[in-house]
Design a protein around this nucleic acid. Structure first.
Length: 464
RNA sequence: CGGGGCAUAGCGCAGUCUGGUAGCGCAUCUGCUUUGGGAGCAGAGGGUCGCAGGUUCAAAUCCUGCUGCCCCGACCA
């Protein structure tokens, strides 16, 4: 909605060639630094494309700037994650990136965490750290305010930058040191309650990844010292994935829980989770050859996968040492049962590209594309094409579509190549040849399918 | 952290072995011609050769130290 904020019912949008329009995204006035050649450091396709299409710039090993269209995608992913977290009953807050070492000493993790934690000393020689995760801090917030079981269940989350000083960052934002993460933390009076909280996140994750255009499969994950079955990694299949995964093909066609799912319906959610955990699915670490062999051959999937989410129940691991307790109905103090639930939007940008690209560039799924439409003026300066483009821009914007107008003084081939590289879902090619018959060409990026349509039909075709 | 490699113009590279005052392609700028899948011609600008020492009449090139980055492995949202 580039002009949504300023366009009222009878407003006429400024024409593209009219100076002073701050709301119209003209490529000639935008910042989209694309590269024709592959940067040599980029090994995997998503990293190459993110650099070439001008989404990111590396500033240091595993640390990136997000350039305009990269930031737009990141924000769109975060917005979808946020909507689904809210829908499931989680409540957003925001914790700082810098934390005090003292908090981490309470859980004994300050010494246990090792060199992955970036430790900082401030001017008063106080020991600080750039947070790699927030269990301690959220537990501190919780224990400061919550006293009664009546205030449970509670799930607090934030979307914040984290830092893990990986020995070897690689693959661009897939494995960076600084990364954006949505991390949610649930608090319940007992394990039964925690299971329901876990199920809420499980279902929210199914919806989130589906909305992002991904088929994510929950796979049994290592639960560490806690044990039990309450830990899943959500994996998407991609040929360049980091790990080897095995699962039943039927998962790919399982129905996604609908938007009106009742997240307070304990039995209902359990039914969904049971279905999504009823078939075999495991990463190579947890792979059970015998269980996999039992799957009919035509239902077996053995592929590479990328982890895009992880949900985890860890009981009283932090609430006990940090004394996060509530008074139960029995009048006694109970340490709360907790779980944590992560999704990495900055990793998802790369993961989505791994799962959705072709030889020419990125193929964005509609919901997270930086713009909905690349509007290509093949002959800038030609009155007919200029006016047709202005009309198309206005009509699409008024229907709420985000349009990037390529008004650069470039040859057609260069514009087509740029449009394919940056991968907006729709392209509209406006040139003298088509306009001679009153037509523009609408191209669907994902399929390459092209249609010659009148201007009005083109708008209808794209805006629905 | 172990092993390997790289660092020369915005990007990709040659030149380093065998020291002699820096080059190619793309990109950028100007002009002309072009204009439906990354145009052609002509011209121009842009580099203390990662940093610091050393050897030498002379160092991108040889020597020493440092820094940054990449790849393979172990580790991970």
């Amino acid at each position: 909605m580039p002009c949504g904020g300023v366009v009222s019912a009878n407003d006429s949008l400024p024409l593209p060639h009219k100076p002073g329009c701050r709301f119209l995204m003209r490529l000639s006035r935008y910042f989209l630094p694309t590269l024709r050649e592959d940067p040599k450091e980029a090994e995997i396709v998503s990293h190459r494309l993110m650099l070439r299409a001008g989404l990111i710039r590396q500033q240091s090993a595993g640390i990136y700037s997000w350039l305009p269209i990269g930031l737009k995608v990141l924000n769109k992913i975060s917005a979808i994650v946020r909507e689904e977290q809210n829908r499931s009953g989680a409540v957003e807050l925001l914790m700082p990136t810098i934390q005090s070492a003292d908090l981490w000493r309470e859980s004994s993790r300050y010494d246990a965490y090792g060199k992955e934690m970036l430790r900082i000393t401030d001017r008063h020689e106080r020991e600080m750290l750039y947070g790699p995760t927030n269990e301690e801090m959220i537990t501190d917030i919780f224990r400061s305010y919550v006293r009664s079981y009546k205030d449970l269940p509670l799930n607090l989350y934030h979307i914040q930058w984290k830092f893990r000083d990986e020995i070897r960052p690689r693959f661009g934002t897939m494995r960076s040191r600084e990364f954006l993460m949505k991390d949610a933390y649930s608090f319940d009076i007992d394990q039964a309650g925690a299971r329901h909280s876990y199920n809420r996140m499980f279902v929210a994750y199914l919806r989130t990844f589906a909305r992002l255009g991904l088929k994510a499969i929950p796979m049994q994950a290592d639960t560490g010292p806690i044990g039990g079955d309450l830990s899943h990694e959500f994996i998407i299949l991609a040929s360049t994935g980091e790990s080897e995964v095995f699962c039943h093909r039927d998962f790919l066609d399982f129905p996604i829980p609908t938007a009106d799912t009742d997240f307070d319906d304990i039995a209902g959610l359990q039914t969904i989770v049971d279905k999504w955990t009823s078939l075999y699915a495991a990463t190579s670490e947890k792979h059970d050859e015998a269980a996999f062999a039992a799957i009919p051959n035509d239902r077996k999937v053995s592929a590479r996968g990328i982890e895009v989410g992880h949900i985890f129940y860890f009981g009283t691991k932090y609430s006990l040492p940090m004394k996060a307790t509530v008074t139960g109905p029995d009048g006694q103090e109970h340490p709360v049962h907790m779980g944590s639930y992560g999704i990495g939007p900055s990793r998802l940008v790369a993961a989505i590209i791994e799962a959705s690209h072709d030889e020419a560039g990125i193929v964005w799924p509609d919901p997270i594309a930086p713009f909905d439409v690349s509007l290509i003026n093949i002959k800038v300066g030609d009155t007919a094409t200029d006016e047709a483009c202005a009309h198309l821009y206005r009509a699409l914007a008024l229907r709420g579509l985000d349009v990037l107008y390529d008004d650069r003084d470039e040859r057609p081939g260069a514009k087509f190549a740029t449009a394919d590289l940056v991968g907006m879902p729709w392209q509209i090619l406006v040139g003298p040849k088509g306009l001679a018959d009153g037509k523009v060409e609408v191209k669907r990026r994902a399929t390459g399918e092209r249609e010659l349509l009148s201007i009005e039909d083109a708008v209808t075709r794209i805006a629905g």
